[in-house]
Every structure is written in C-alpha cells, then in structure tokens.
C-alpha cells in the first residue's frame, strides 16, 4: 500500500472516529445527576465517573524479550502485587497478576496509536495486548470519608499502612470484582466492568449517604 492511500484511510478513520465519539454512552452516565449531588466544597466524600479512559490488557511474562519491549513503550511493567508504573502521557500500568497487567490512560493524552505500538512491541513474543477500553469504566471516590465508604463492603485492608497512595489491587467491593487504585491520600479510583457500573454506582451512593447528609444541629 502506498503512502497516499494510507493517509486517506487515516483521515476517513478520524472522521468516523469523531462521529462515533459523539454518539457513545458511558456505562454509568444515567447516574451522573446523582453523582453530581455528592460534589460540594464541604462534602465528606464525592463520586464521579471518568468515562472512556483507554485501557489495554497486557498478558506477557515481564522478564521475556517481548515483556521488555512492551515495558519500553509503557514506562516499565510492575513486578509485584499493588505496584503501578507510570509512563509518558499519563499512562499507568497496574499489576493484575504475575503475567497480567492493565494499562490505563486518558483518551485525550494519547494519539490513538498506542494499541498498534504495543502490538508491534510484543512482536512474535508470547503474550497478547488487547484494547479493553470498553471493558471497564472508572469511578473516582474522593474525600476524607472515601476510605470509610469502601471499607463497608471491601474486605481488603485499606488502612494506609497496607494500602498506601499509588497502590492498586484487584479485589471485590460489594460482590463486584473491581480494580481499586489509590491515586491520592483520599482519592480512590474504582474500575468495575461496564455491566456492573450501574449496580456499583448505586451501591457506592448508598454507602455515601451517611456522609453526605447535611449535619443537623437540632438533634437531641
């Protein structure tokens, strides 16, 4: 294929992509109005959805040649449970298993060639890189009471001595399998699969109610 044809194809793809981007729906967008009510300056805890993040599932032995080449693209691969490595353009790689990783990145920060770059990096090495962007959505639970909300239904030890900022684990929240990533002191990102987004969104809202109800001074 000659270069001119390639560039025409790319342009058509861009137009189609823009068209699709405008029409897509995030798994929890029907809850955004409810989420918005939790956000205020004095809120103890707030919840929002960060839709359409780029996610790539990576299965590779990190010590193999292919693993090293992929690490060069992503800014390294984590080597132990809980670790997150960060790369260019806000790209982060979360450890899911000894040979399984989840790459997360902001859509705007990437130019759309990441998947191809990863496939090229793996080459003929054993493993796979799969675009899983639609597999999970992202919730962000933030505020001084965020940990208390999660601890109601997450059995993993979330105390800072065991779960410090920057740590990500795969675990269960209210029977929903999720990836849980502590991105800041009081900020957690929760990645449920799309079909669980409605349930988990409502579940978290319910858990947040005691912290979001305005404190009354007329209690006896």
């Amino acid at each position: 294929m000659v270069n001119t044809t390639e560039s025409t194809d790319a342009q058509i793809t861009d137009v189609q992509q823009t068209h699709l981007t405008a029409r897509r729906h995030s798994p929890a967008e029907h809850l955004w109005a409810e989420f918005a009510k939790t956000a205020s300056a004095e809120a103890r805890v707030s919840l929002r959805e960060i839709p359409f993040q780029v996610m790539v599932g990576i299965r590779v032995d990190p010590l193999s040649e292919g693993g090293r080449r992929i690490g060069a693209v992503t800014g390294g691969l984590p080597t132990a449970c809980g670790q997150v490595t960060t790369g260019v353009a806000g790209m982060a790689v979360l450890w899911l298993g000894p040979d399984e990783f989840l790459l997360v990145a902001e859509e705007e920060a990437l130019d759309g060639t990441l998947a191809a770059e990863l496939v090229a990096a793996l080459g003929d090495g054993a493993g796979q890189t799969v675009d899983l962007s639609s597999n999970r959505t992202t919730f962000e639970l933030a505020g001084p009471s965020a940990r208390a909300v999660l601890e109601k239904s997450c059995a993993a030890d979330l105390h800072p001595r065991a779960f410090s900022t920057g740590v990500a684990i795969a675990t269960v929240i209210g029977n929903v399998p999720v990836v849980l990533w502590k991105t800041d002191n009081e900020t957690f990102r929760v990645f449920p699969r799309a079909s669980f987004a409605d349930y988990l969104g409502r579940w978290l809202l319910d858990g947040m109610r005691e912290f979001t109800v305005a404190e009354s001074t007329t209690w006896h």
Binding site: C81, G97, P98, A155, A156, D157, I169, A170, T171, V172
Partner: peptide, 17 residues
Amino acid sequence: MLLFPCPNCGPRNETEF
C-alpha cells in the same frame, strides 16, 4: 472472615478465592 495468604497478593478474604 478467613484470610488466605495468596502467594502473589498476600492475605485476602476467602471470598476472593
């Protein structure tokens, strides 16, 4: 609750297994 010591992930709730 029973904690299982996963060789990869450390102690986790038995319901994860």
